[in-house]
Nucleic acid binder design. Structure first.
Lengths: 322, 322
DNA sequence: CTGAAAGCGCTTACAG
DNA sequence: CTGAAAGCGCTTACAG
């Protein structure tokens, strides 16, 4: 049970701990005979030696861990892709990515103190004091600060909604509604999106948009009926899941899509191609985002500022629902 | 930049490192005056002191980290719930859950060596040699071994499919097909499910089931037509996403669901309530699974065997597609 | 070519 | 009630 240490390996191999360390780390410039190397390696393997990460980290003064803090909202395949890419890129530097599901600020502070990783990457904004504390502890921080930068983050949300309205307006719609999700954890995004819808309508001199929360797990029949009665002809939905609930509501309300009501989602989820009718949606290609995140982390690790945000590559995928 | 250490705090507060440690850890039995305690605490806060996790781990001989290894397939809200619950339960013991997206066995070995966590929790089975190596390093391992236990894991997949067929048979269907996902990473599950479909058909003396891969992102029109031509009247789909593609295929092929073709999914995703028609599916309540996982981890940490697998609480949710 | 020794930052018996 | 000291396991200048 007592773990095998490098001293155990040294003793069993009949060499010093120095030699064991040199061999197992392939230390450049260490002149150890090939025979000895082989002997040390096989001894280590035989004993099942695994170096203590804590000791190595303490000695080296830095950890090989990067903690990625996920927001407390449901994440999908996009976040998975971001993490996969980040894991690959950092692995080339010998760094390991571990993910934590974020709850509150207190939990975050406990976490980074318990791990003291090389870097903390946040997919949602951090509180300013959290960032200060982490940086003071010598931890590199990647991620926007709340709410100082006002939000490259919020802005990209805002712009997604503008794309939706622009498309609907190009189809001749003038009375637009926004279907926001019911999950409280998504409120922030919902608000940013609705602001985008409002701004886009104002810019095009359309009437102020309506808004309602639409649960993803039931047909939005009542909401659709009310909107239709009020003259709404097009719905921008928070995402494809919400859009599906709007489609189902239209069906149950006896409305035809897109003639009576046009619907546009966000995400271009696989399901968007198999709804009735197939769903027009906004796609956000994941590759540029993944590369930007990985580049940001590398830049911060190297003590540089983050690279510029890529031009928003989101685009409308037109199907039959608009 | 150089991190603040407990020695810095001790010097600034005019006490010994011992006292700093006693105060900051609330060590029981340490008799330090309240005035000194307050002084130490405020000094530590003023300096922004964060203890070195590596040093503490090295000294204590054990880490406060638990690594949860996720399989390399797309995970959804169910896994999120499992992780949330596990995080909460382990936090009560002062343990932190970090998640790693698993790629291959080599990456796993590098990971646990780089972290040396208290425990590694696997949501997909581990290779036997990985388990042996981790346990030798003093790491508690939770998760099934490949393929020793033949698979409580595979068995629960198998049984989901049996539930699907039982339901379809109770509706009078005799010729059943299985729609498997196209993602290679899901092959293992697809195979276990199809075995369940096959066994259930055999047990009920139904003809051998057909099987085809169905992409989630296009209507399965061709497959549905072929199946219908061959007399298939009911489809058990791998999950609700695949089931939606089957529904879309039936629509495009001009078939009525459920009269011409019955469809049953798995997951009871929110979307299952808003498809056309609403989807019959198999729901797996997540609470018993979450509790079982957390209980397993606690048991292993305490050196006990894992608790018994809960009675499979999966059940059919009947809607209009069957 | 190889080994003895220092020191990373912490906790904790032990001495005062 | 408080402090000096040992030691966790590793890496790496340094001496031989």
């Amino acid at each position: 049970m007592a773990s095998v240490t490098s001293a155990d390996v040294a003793r069993a191999a009949g060499v010093s701990r120095t030699t064991v360390s040199y061999v197992l780390n392939d230390t450049p410039g260490a002149s150890v005979s090939e025979a000895t190397r082989e002997h040390v390696r096989s001894t280590a393997a035989r004993l099942g030696y695994a170096p203590s990460a804590a000791a190595r980290t303490l000695r080296r003064g830095r950890s090989d861990l990067v903690v990625c803090v996920l927001p407390d909202w449901p994440t999908g395949p996009v976040v998975d892709s971001l993490l996969d890419h980040l894991t690959d890129v950092l692995a080339e530097r010998g760094l390991f990515v571990l993910v934590h599901h974020h709850r509150d600020s207190r939990a975050l502070a406990e976490l980074w103190r318990a791990v003291t990783p090389r870097a903390v990457v946040g997919l949602a904004p951090f509180a300013a004091e959290d960032v200060r504390a982490m940086e003071q502890a010598g931890i590199a921080v990647v991620g926007s600060v709340e709410p100082a930068d006002g939000g490259a983050f919020d802005r990209s949300q805002h712009d997604l909604a503008v794309l939706q309205v622009d498309h609907l307006a190009s189809r001749g719609h003038r009375s637009v509604a926004f279907a926001t999700p019911t999950d409280d954890r998504l409120r922030r995004f919902g608000d940013a999106r609705f602001a985008g819808v409002r701004d886009a309508c104002a810019a095009r001199r359309l009437p102020a948009p309506r808004q309602a929360a639409v649960p993803a797990d039931e047909p939005a029949t009542g909401t659709v009926r009310a909107w239709h009665a009020e003259g709404v002809t097009a719905v921008a939905a928070y995402n494809d899941e919400v859009a599906q609930a709007v489609l189902a509501g239209a069906r149950d309300a006896g409305l035809t899509v897109p003639d009576d009501l046009a619907v546009i989602g966000v995400d271009d989820a696989p399901a968007a191609r198999v709804t009735t009718p197939p769903l027009t949606t906004v796609a956000q290609p994941v590759t540029p985002q993944s590369e930007h995140l990985a580049a940001s982390v590398l830049a911060v690790l190297d003590g540089q500022g983050p690279p510029p945000w890529p031009d928003d590559p989101a685009r409308v995928v037109v199907r039959s629902s608009t």
